[in-house]
Computed example of a mutant assay.
Amino acid sequence: MNVEIGKIVNTHGIKGEVKILTDSDFTDERFKKGQLIKVKNKNEEIPFTIASHRIHKNFHLLTFEGIHNINDIEHLKGCKIFQDQENESIELEENEYYYYQIIGCTVFVQDEALGRVVDIMETGANDVWVVKGDKEYLIPYIEDVVKLVDVDRKTIKIEPLEGLLD
């Protein structure tokens, strides 16, 4: 199964480097030299091996093996990039999840659905899940709030702290 990890938003310089906008997790691992990614261009999936990765002005800049010129890569602006989820090399600790496992889950307070997780924000101290229902809620991923995550059933049960849902 392929997991979306970002989008090529532009080129950078003339040597084939691309700017990636990502909302993926573990970017240091995903964009490590030697990692295989796929670029979806129309109905075609084009495999690339990452040759280099660096961060510049909140964008991930990548080069690919065999690509040394802007003309070889420019046509892929706007294309989404994917990685094979079955090749995940990242060991997760207990109560750690990949973004794709959390995004799309329905969040419940007791038995009432609050909404679905649509985004994850990294704040440094803990992640914050953006949940959209009748309105938008910001749910901190902390033990005091998140009580149960069932990625197979795509459900999350929370006990909100006082004032969290106001």
Results as ranks from 00 to 15, higher is better:
residue 81 I to A: 02
residue 12 H to R: 12
residue 116 R to L: 06
residue 164 L to S: 01
residue 41 N to M: 09
residue 149 V to M: 01
residue 118 V to K: 14
residue 94 E to I: 11
residue 139 I to Y: 01
residue 157 K to R: 12
residue 149 V to C: 04
residue 36 L to R: 15
residue 47 P to T: 05
residue 122 E to D: 15
residue 155 T to M: 02
residue 41 N to L: 09
residue 120 I to A: 04
residue 155 T to G: 00
residue 103 I to Y: 03
residue 71 N to V: 08
residue 8 I to N: 01
residue 100 Y to I: 01
residue 151 V to S: 00
residue 70 I to N: 10
residue 3 V to Y: 07
residue 107 V to I: 09
residue 5 I to V: 09
residue 99 Y to I: 00
residue 19 K to S: 09
residue 142 I to F: 07
residue 143 E to W: 08
residue 69 N to K: 12
residue 17 E to K: 14
residue 105 C to N: 06
residue 96 E to T: 07
residue 45 E to K: 07
residue 31 F to N: 03
residue 15 K to C: 08
residue 31 F to D: 02
residue 29 E to R: 14
residue 125 A to F: 11
residue 117 V to I: 09
residue 158 I to G: 00
residue 76 L to V: 05
residue 114 L to T: 03
residue 130 V to K: 07
residue 112 E to L: 03
residue 159 E to I: 06
residue 68 H to A: 08
residue 81 I to L: 13
residue 142 I to C: 10
residue 65 E to G: 09
residue 69 N to A: 06
residue 130 V to H: 08
residue 156 I to A: 05
residue 28 D to F: 11
residue 95 N to C: 11
residue 58 N to I: 05
residue 5 I to E: 03
residue 71 N to E: 12
residue 124 G to Y: 05
residue 14 I to H: 12
residue 88 E to V: 09
residue 78 G to Q: 08
residue 71 N to S: 12
residue 74 E to F: 03
residue 115 G to M: 05
residue 163 G to C: 09
residue 54 R to Q: 13
residue 80 K to W: 06
residue 82 F to W: 06
residue 111 D to F: 00
residue 125 A to Q: 15
residue 51 A to E: 08
residue 129 W to V: 03
residue 92 L to D: 08
residue 123 T to N: 11
residue 147 K to W: 07
residue 99 Y to C: 04
